[in-house]
Simulated scan of single mutants.
Amino acid sequence: MRRKARQATKPENRPRFWGRHAVAAALGNPERTIARIWATREAAAQFDFGDIPVTFADVADLGRLVPREAPHQGVVAEVEKLPDLWLGDLLDQAEDGRPLLVLDQVTDPHNVGAILRSAAAFDALGIVTQDRHAPPESGALAKAASGALETVPWVRVVNLARALEEMAEAGFWRVGLTGEADMTLAEAMGPARIALVLGAEGEGMRQNTETHCDALARLPISDRIESLNVSNAAAIALYAATVARG
């Protein structure tokens, strides 16, 4: 899949990933450039860093490289951000039965990371977010994704409404999830290509996003709770789409 050219990031702006899953996944991604690594000798023995510069450090020194109490597990990597993907290229790889996730202004990195992890678990085609109203790559996001940041295609677009139009042109049935919908998700399922659209917690989808959906649906949850965390809702919706497709 083609990626947009991107200039090297200044060192002070490079993300730092921590934890063995996130760093191992970054090492295994040929599209990922790793600038440098810090590790304890014990943790380093479990990796093949190749020709990447490695600085050996103790646990306390590593703790100063990451947010407070971040579970670095003895290894921290400074990386270049992945080049952006083209939406058209992702849509060209669409297959019946592989859902696409669209996130409308979901900005919490832990939620987006968890959604990436669920997308990997259910073999989703990828996720699509806005360029500006989505979290950047970060250690917290990579940790929550548990490696899925390196394997699930993530397309960032300037105009989400236009992106939804492109999805329709590619044969996707766009289902927006909202608690106010009359139909359940099972009732709203349409053709074999499904795009699941989720909005931010609290605000939900914007009105312009809703108008670019083919159907609005709700998850059939108990009235004892108002709503689900967006990452939980995404996981349930992916499971429902997978079951619907057989």
Rank of each mutant, 00 (worst) to 15 (best):
M1D: 04
R2P: 10
R2H: 07
R3C: 03
A8Y: 08
R14V: 04
W18N: 03
A22M: 11
A25K: 05
L27C: 01
L27M: 07
N29R: 03
N29Q: 04
R32T: 10
I34C: 06
A35I: 09
I37Q: 05
E42H: 03
A44Q: 04
F47K: 03
G50C: 02
T55Y: 00
T55V: 03
F56E: 05
L65C: 06
L65H: 05
A70P: 06
A70I: 01
A70T: 03
V75Y: 02
A77I: 06
E78N: 08
W86N: 11
W86E: 15
L87K: 07
L87V: 00
L90P: 06
L91P: 01
D92H: 13
D108S: 07
P109T: 10
N111Q: 12
N111G: 09
V112I: 11
G113T: 03
L116A: 07
S118G: 05
A120P: 01
D123M: 00
G126Y: 04
R132N: 00
E137H: 07
E137T: 14
S138E: 00
G139P: 05
A140W: 00
K143W: 13
A144D: 03
S146Y: 00
V152E: 12
R156W: 08
V157W: 06
A161V: 13
R162L: 13
A163G: 05
L164N: 03
E165D: 15
E166H: 14
M167D: 07
A168W: 01
G171E: 05
G171D: 00
R174Q: 08
R174D: 01
R174G: 01
G176H: 06
T178V: 04
A181M: 11
T184D: 04
A188P: 01
M189F: 15
M189A: 14
G190D: 09
P191D: 15
A192G: 15
V197W: 00
L198T: 07
E201L: 04
R206F: 14
N208V: 15
T209C: 08
H212C: 09
D214I: 13
A217I: 05
R218Y: 05
P220G: 09
P220M: 10
I221M: 15
E226R: 14
N232T: 12
A233N: 07
A234P: 02
A235D: 11
A235H: 06
A237H: 08
A237I: 00
Y239E: 07
V243H: 09
A244K: 08
